[in-house]
Design a binder for these strands. Structure first.
Length: 529
RNA sequence: GGCCCGUUCGUAUAGGGGUUAGUACGCCAGGUUUUCAUCCUGGUAACAGGGGUUCGAAUCCCCUACGGGCUACCA
């Protein structure tokens, strides 16, 4: 275990105001910055989780910032979904759009007016420029460069003077176009040839030559900044000290670094997390994978507001949030010890960027299930009984808590999810409607019906109706009659449960009670002949 | 195509020059049990390949292969 001093500020799930009032223990500030273009998938949750671990480990602040600069891709409900998902997972924020904070607003669309002056500042410094090229012209450029097999096929230093922008045009021409209201974007003026080296906490120094980079659009013709500009401006304004994000951003790192240089700002520490991969084939886990693979890729169930398509979620599938985060935390990070079971507090205390891996992690459903099973076993009987009773209620069956607790204590070791309890325990409340054919074939032959009738006669006379008493009497009877123990008991189980699996047979008899037990035997004898 | 990142059992990983290459999940076998599950015991199974460096390389360097990411007026 780690012996280093650990400070864990409390963030009670229901007491945000309390955490807001709490002064951070350090100036470490991290952010999770999702885009509300749909439900957050588990890769995003893991990124948020690592940011959260890091913030709490360092006694810093955790910020939620909504990056909604793409008006086309905005999806109604996505922001609320993201917030609810993170809350369910136990990831709490110190600042965000739903709670405010000293660096707000926390939604980029609400910060819209802020960005133009930063883009223009760069133009004034000759580090960015206005560009008037139409989509068709850009398309033509791309095709031309591809045909020429140019080393860099993008809008870059090598070709920008061939295009319509404030670098190729005269000052007068540029001013005229601007005044006419011709649509324009502002592009970053990437240096022609320059090695750019940036340190990454996880990958070390990454070096790229700017000749392979392009003049990225910073400000779009629709009046919104692109991600690149907004992200740098906001991280700076919000005093973010550590940018912990997915590896898919690594190619943008040199650009972002150059932007900090251009503004003369001190860049934050960067850490690019390995990707979460699909469990089957290859590629990063995507929203589309959904139920195709038989496991949820979203924390919560999501209904697409346009298509109405429903995607399953971990919560609705019966996962406990603590199992979900414990499993997710270990996908790309490890404590360096053999410990695998971690509470949220333990994870926050043990986490460090140094122990985050570099290679992509594949999701494993079996492992996820085993974590859930572990946490389910920690649950007290009465809590699980409550879940069972809810399930029964949905099927129109009411029972009292004592019976539910008794049943749960018998079946809980067979459950992976609390939702399994209903399926595993239904026969305690409902006689089997049919009998497993394979078991019938194996355990039910000519003499069985007679044996069951005789056994029913024996049971009828046993008192008190309690598991150990029943067991003693029945086993004694089987021996005395010279019957086969397995044959009789399995046939009896078939009568009571309809199949061959389940808890201790005499416990089932006990819970069922004499009347119901005898009725089920009679019914089975009748039905199976 | 270009640029960048990566590569230890099926999966997640430990390991940072000398280890019988460890652990967990899964899988297989045995034990316990009337059955299933649980539980216990044991087992299967990995350093992508090739060159170096070194007395010695899973560990350091290079190349190759393979995998992945990015390559939008998306994030």
């Amino acid at each position: 275990m780690l012996n280093a001093p650990v400070s864990l500020p409390l963030h009670p799930p229901s007491g945000r105001t309390e955490s807001m009032m709490k002064e951070p223990l350090s100036n470490i500030r991290v952010r999770f910055a999702p885009s509300p273009t749909g439900p957050l998938h588990i890769g995003g949750v893991r990124t948020a989780l690592y940011n959260y671990f890091f913030a709490r480990r360092q006694g810093g602040s955790m910020i939620l910032r909504i990056e909604d600069t793409d008006q086309q891709r905005f999806v109604p409900g996505a922001e609320a979904y993201i917030i609810e998902s993170l809350r369910w997972a136990g990831i709490h924020f110190d600042e965000g759009p739903d709670m405010g904070g000293p660096f707000g607003p926390y939604r980029q669309s609400d910060r819209k007016d802020l960005y133009p002056r930063y883009a223009e500042e760069l133009v004034k410094k000759d580090l960015a420029y206005y560009a008037f090229d139409t989509p068709e012209e850009l398309d033509t450029l791309r095709k031309r460069l591809e045909a020429e097999k140019a080393p860099n096929t993008s809008y870059c230093a090598a070709v920008r003077l061939d295009m319509r922008n404030s670098l190729s045009l005269s000052t007068e021409e540029t001013r005229a176009l601007l005044e006419e209201g011709v649509p324009y974007v502002i592009r970053f003026k990437m240096p022609a040839r320059e090695d750019i080296s940036v340190d990454d906490e996880i990958r070390g120094t990454v070096t790229v030559n700017s000749a392979t980079l392009d003049d990225k659009v910073l400000f779009k013709s629709d009046g919104m900044p692109t991600y690149h500009l907004a992200n740098i401006v906001d991280d700076h304004l919000m005093e973010v000290t550590h940018v912990i994000r997915g590896e898919e951003w690594l190619p943008s790192l040199p650009l972002h670094y150059m932007l900090y240089q251009a503004f003369g700002w001190e860049p934050p520490v960067f850490a690019h997390l390995p990707l979460l991969l699909k469990p089957d084939g290859q590629g990063k886990l995507s929203k589309r994978d959904g139920d195709r693979l038989g496991f949820p890729v979203f924390p919560l169930q999501w209904t697409d507001p346009f298509s109405g398509e429903v995607s399953s979620g971990y919560r609705e599938s019966g996962y406990y949030p603590e199992a979900f985060i414990n499993f997710l935390a270990l996908l790309g990070w490890n404590p360096g010890t053999e410990q695998e079971i971690f509470s949220m507090d333990e994870l926050c205390g043990a986490f460090s960027l140094e122990r985050v891996g570099r290679s992509g992690a594949r999701f494993d459903l079996d492992k996820a299930r085993s974590f859930n099973q572990h946490y389910l076993r920690l649950r007290p009987d009465d809590e699980l009984a409550g879940v069972l009773m809810q399930g029964l209620k949905g099927r129109g069956i009411t029972t009292n808590p004592e019976v539910a607790v008794k049943v749960v204590s018998l079946i809980r070791e067979r459950a992976v999810f609390a939702t399994d309890l209903l399926e595993q325990g239904l026969y305690f409340f409902e006689a089997p409607s049919d009998y497993d054919e394979k078991v019938v074939a194996k355990r039910w032959n000519e003499g069985t019906a007679g044996q069951m009738k005789a056994l029913a006669g024996l049971l009828d006379g046993i008192a008190p109706w309690q598991s150990p008493v029943l067991e003693g009497a029945v086993k004694e009877w089987i021996s005395a009659e010279g019957h086969n123990m397995g044959a009789v008991l399995n046939a009896l189980r078939l009568c009571l449960v309809g199949t061959s699996a389940g808890p201790h047979l005499f416990d089932i008899l006990d819970v069922l009670g004499k009347e119901e037990s005898l009725a089920r035997i009679a019914r089975a004898v009748e039905r199976l002949k």
